[in-house]
């Protein structure tokens, strides 16, 4: 009987650097080119903001505002990055954020205070993710269709709950976190949550079996299945994860606005997909980058801020966003074809 090959003791750290270095450095360099070009764009935007509105843009308060605004969509984008890496798509994120935010701010829920609001946001997000996951993984539905259906239903349900009215939050604990000068560990609370979600997301994707399975399912689902991976269960987990991120984002939005509205999270799905794609995650699956996604979010949020400071209307912003998506993908195609 053949024994499983086990690594010779200590062989792992005695990796021969000479043979290893070129390929390794090649991979690093490639990842770096992508990340560096995104950082370059972000730096250019900051320069533009600093030149056009030196006093307002570079003000600490404004920079905090940019990060805080990026936090909500950023958390959603981390979840979206996993789904896209697995070769899927989640069109329902914005609607789930809306539904979770209104369900968590009904008068009945608010009676349970801070914990009730947090718990409900997360649970509604997970519930929607569960439905998505079951339909896609075990019902055999195409992700595009299943999450499109969820988008419609969740928005409808959110409207039904609120009847179109804004639900004001009266829980002090929540309102306190939304104050302009609220800090936790020296950073605005939303930014802290965003940072934690980003770090966990990065570790999950790059250092765990869960992340490997995600990449394998996206890179070649049939190969993953024949290698013994439970592809369906992995898909279910991924949509659950996206739902969870939406629930967290809904809670952040409640803090930020001090209310719950059925119009929350409008077009988040497009912003999250766009941020992931310009970050370098392959829409066809098999490769994903959390760092790229976060940079994508920061770029979009910074543009929005600069345009608002310069009194440019949102139509111009939209055009600029579209141009950036096209430019980013063109640059990536070029770097991909030369490697």
């Amino acid at each position: 009987m053949t024994q499983p090959v086990s690594p010779p003791r200590g062989s792992a750290d005695k990796v021969r650097p000479a043979a290893e270095a070129p390929a390794w450095r090649g991979l690093m360099a490639r990842a770096d080119v992508r990340t560096l070009s995104l950082l370059g764009v972000l730096a250019a935007l900051i320069v533009i903001g600093g030149i056009t509105k030196p006093d307002e843009f570079l003000d600490t308060r404004n920079l905090q505002l940019v990060l805080t605004q990026a936090s909500v969509i950023g958390v959603v984008t981390v979840g979206m990055t996993f789904v896209i890496t697995s070769g899927g798509i989640d069109l329902s994120v914005g609607a789930i954020v809306a539904l979770a935010s209104v369900w968590a701010t009904t008068v009945a829920t608010q009676e349970y205070g801070f914990g009730g609001i947090l718990f409900t946001s997360v649970l509604v997000g997970l519930g929607c993710g569960l439905v998505n996951g079951l339909l896609i993984a075990y019902g055999g539905m195409v992700p595009f269709i299943a999450t499109l259906a969820m988008l419609a239903s969740a928005r409808g349900l959110a409207l039904q709950i609120t009847d179109g009215r804004t639900q004001i939050v009266t829980v002090d604990g929540v309102l306190d976190l939304g104050e302009r000068d609220a800090y936790v560990l020296g950073v605005p609370p939303l930014v802290l949550v965003f940072a934690v979600v980003t770090i966990i997301g990065w570790l999950l994707l790059n250092r765990t079996t869960f992340g490997r399975r995600t990449v394998a399912v996206g890179g070649n689902a049939e190969a993953a299945r024949l290698a013994g991976i439970d592809v369906r269960r992995q898909r279910l987990y991924l949509y659950l994860l996206s739902g969870l991120c939406c629930g967290i984002a809904a809670f952040l939005l409640i803090i930020l606005s001090g209310s719950g509205q059925n119009t929350n999270g409008n077009l988040y799905e497009l912003d999250a997909i766009a941020a992931a794609i310009i970050g370098g995650t392959l829409l066809s699956g098999g490769r994903g980058t959390i760092v790229g996604s976060v940079l994508g979010v920061l770029i979009f949020t910074t543009i929005t801020n600069i345009f608002a400071l310069n009194n440019l209307q949102s139509d111009v912003q939209q055009i600029a966003k579209g141009a950036i998506i096209v430019a980013a993908v063109l640059v990536q195609r070029r770097t991909a074809s030369t490697t």
Binding site: V5, S6, P7, P8, S11, A12, D13, V15, R207, T208, T209, F210, R212
Partner: peptide
């Protein structure tokens, strides 16, 4: 992996041996 956390050194060593 321990609790889902991959020991990449061990992984590389095993892949190299195989």
């Amino acid at each position: 992996a321990k609790a889902g956390w991959i020991d990449r050194g061990a992984e590389l060593g095993a892949a190299r041996a195989a």
